[in-house]
Simulated scan of single mutants.
Amino acid sequence: MINVIVSYTVKPEFVTENKTNIQKFLDDFKNLDQETFEYKVYIKEDDVTFLHYSNYINEEVQHEVLNVPSFKEFQKLRDESGLNGSHKIEILQSI
């Protein structure tokens, strides 16, 4: 199992657009086999920091999920919005 947490902070004026872009890829993820991965998105109390939690049964599934066109577009728009070095990816190990 691959478990990942991604966090980043966006500018306040980009929050609404980011939420819209997230909903687009989450809707598209519903067309994939939900038994092979989990993907959840949260926003912190500061209303500008997003946390994406995902787990995948293997690298093949991870690759399939992360290459959905709406997800790639979300990443592009998010990165272009100006994250100011706040983007952080953490791989979690099960205990």
Rank of each mutant, 00 (worst) to 15 (best):
M1S: 03
M1E: 04
I2S: 02
I2V: 10
N3C: 10
N3A: 14
V4A: 08
I5Q: 04
S7D: 08
S7F: 06
Y8A: 15
T9H: 02
T9I: 11
V10K: 05
K11S: 14
K11I: 11
K11P: 00
P12I: 08
P12Q: 07
P12C: 05
F14L: 03
F14K: 15
E17I: 12
E17Y: 04
T20Y: 04
N21K: 12
I22F: 01
F25W: 02
L26D: 02
D27T: 11
D27C: 03
D27G: 09
D28I: 03
D28N: 12
F29E: 00
F29C: 05
F29N: 00
N31W: 01
L32I: 05
L32F: 07
E35W: 00
T36K: 13
T36M: 09
E38W: 00
E38L: 11
E38Q: 12
K40S: 02
K40N: 09
I43M: 11
K44N: 07
E45S: 13
E45D: 13
D46Y: 11
D46M: 13
D46E: 13
D47F: 03
F50G: 04
F50M: 08
F50P: 00
Y53C: 08
S54G: 13
S54M: 13
N55G: 02
N55E: 11
Y56M: 10
Y56A: 10
N58E: 09
N58R: 05
E60R: 09
V61N: 02
V61Y: 03
V61S: 02
Q62T: 02
Q62K: 14
V65T: 06
V65W: 06
V65G: 03
N67M: 13
V68K: 00
P69S: 03
P69L: 07
F71A: 03
F71H: 12
K72S: 07
E73R: 10
F74I: 02
F74Q: 05
Q75I: 13
Q75S: 06
K76S: 03
L77I: 14
R78Q: 10
R78D: 03
E80R: 07
E80L: 14
G82L: 12
S86Y: 08
H87V: 08
H87D: 05
K88S: 06
K88P: 01
I89T: 07
I89W: 02
E90T: 15
E90R: 01
E90Q: 10
I91R: 07
L92T: 05
L92H: 01
S94A: 09
S94Y: 05
I95V: 15
I95P: 10
